[in-house]
């Protein structure tokens, strides 16, 4: 099952990197479920909202997707990112933990669903400029496409893409600073 998963994930990732938005959203949903399983087991002691780490990891996967090598398996790359974000979150809370990388193979396979973090969306959006805020909100909360958002806000599609990209990078930076 793992081998088949991996082949499918790699296929979707390659399509995503070629600009296929549908394949990209698809692979992100699957990875979110796998990362959730990975993080849950390691935050069982409490104190950290696992969904925060899932979201940190997804943002990092997105902003660093060019560090996946198309000839390499997807999951070791994803779990290395999740592990880095998990250790970072614990470090910011002033706690040291050992996240055993070898345990990944046996324990990480179970996808889990439940998808709300304790972070308040309004507060997340607060850190953005007004232009970025309306673009990110239109696309994420309202589920609009790039084209619809451009029409709605009277912007060019390119400007929407730029605002979205910068907004997401700003959110990632913000998540990297706060004690989650």
């Amino acid at each position: 099952m793992r081998g088949k998963d991996e082949v499918e994930l790699a296929r979707l990732m390659r399509a995503a990197l070629a600009g296929d938005e549908k394949a990209y959203a698809d692979v992100l949903y699957r990875l979110a479920a796998l990362v959730r399983g990975f993080v849950r087991r390691r935050t069982a002691a409490g104190g950290i909202d696992p969904e925060d780490i899932v979201q940190d990891t997804l943002l990092a996967i997105h902003l660093k997707r060019h560090t996946w090598r198309p000839d390499a398996p997807v999951l070791p790359w994803v779990y290395a990112i999740a592990r880095f974000k998990l250790v970072d979150a614990f470090r910011r809370r002033g706690r040291r933990i050992e996240v055993d990388i070898d345990a990944v193979a046996e324990t990480a396979a179970e996808p889990e669903a439940e998808t709300v973090s304790e972070r308040d969306l309004a507060r997340v959006l607060e850190s953005l400029s007004p232009g970025q805020r309306s673009v990110v909100a239109a696309i994420s909360v309202d589920g609009r496409s790039i084209g619809e958002t451009a029409t709605l806000l009277g912007m060019s599609e390119t400007a929407v893409r730029v605002a979205l990209h910068r907004g997401l990078a700003a959110i990632a930076r913000r998540f990297g600073q706060e004690p989650s």
Partner: peptide
């Protein structure tokens, strides 16, 4: 914050793909 909302935003930001690390 819903993770699904975040994924929608990330999915829409697929283009342009950044310069590969290599």
């Amino acid at each position: 914050m819903r993770t699904d909302d975040l994924i929608k935003a990330l999915g829409a930001d697929a283009k342009p793909a950044p310069l590969p690390q290599r």
